[in-house]
């Protein structure tokens, strides 16, 4: 009987020890794994943003050549639009070059404004019969639409990465891990309603 009582005591002790060890492992590993996942998510967001920036810059770089080539076909009344497009492209390039923290809303706004005016410029240029029938306009159109489409894809992938990352931050464990580790939610790449307001151009 004494041997049986001793055996039950040892089993109980081992079980308690195991529970404590498992709790300890859980308390360490769950936040650690969550932190790792959130950091990986943040890296994915940064990588996706780099893709967005690269495509924004690519489109902004197309504008000077486009404007130079289209100028000969544009009427005097279109000069304002041409200058507006050029100014918007320069502003976007500057914003991309200067931003120390990702100012997605501001950049999204500049991008939306440039897209809008580029679209108007191409529509006006397309009304010129000589330009419309030639391969030059086809080339311009393809380059611009190609840039727009790449930007759309990059923007979509960036927003997906942000959605997954932000969802992780708001999770049950994530919300406790994020604050002390300095992990913050990220903004989606969406233009604010003010983005389509007229842009002040100085001549």
């Amino acid at each position: 009987m004494d041997a049986g009582n001793g055996k039950r005591g040892i089993d109980g002790g081992i079980v308690r020890l195991l529970i404590i060890v498992l709790l300890g492992v859980g308390l360490i590993s769950v936040p650690w794994l969550t932190h790792s996942r959130l950091v990986a998510g943040e890296e994915a967001v940064d990588a996706a943003w780099a893709d967005v920036e690269s495509n924004l810059q690519r489109r902004a770089d197309l504008v000077p050549n486009l404007v130079r080539s289209l100028r000969q076909y544009m009427t005097h009344e279109s000069e304002t639009l041409v200058r507006l497009v050029r100014e918007r492209a320069e502003a976007l390039s500057e914003a991309l070059g200067e931003a120390h923290e990702i100012e997605t809303s501001r950049i999204a706004g500049l991008d939306a404004a440039l897209s809008q005016d580029l679209g108007r410029l191409m529509r006006q240029a397309g009304e010129h019969p000589d330009l419309r029938s030639g391969d030059q306009f086809l080339r311009f159109q393809a380059q611009l639409e190609g840039s727009e489409n790449r930007l759309n894809v990059a923007r979509m992938r960036y927003n997906e990465a942000v959605r997954e990352y932000n969802a992780g931050l708001r999770g049950f464990v994530g919300r406790w891990v994020a604050e002390p580790m300095g992990l913050r939610s990220r903004d989606y790449f969406e233009a604010s309603p003010a983005a389509t307001e007229p842009f002040a151009v100085e001549f």
């Binding site: 639409e145 190609g146 489409n149 790449r150 759309n152 894809v153 990059a154």
Partner: peptide, 8 residues
Amino acid sequence: GSGGAGAR
């Protein structure tokens, strides 16, 4: 994969 390059 692709990143939106091409034309429509």
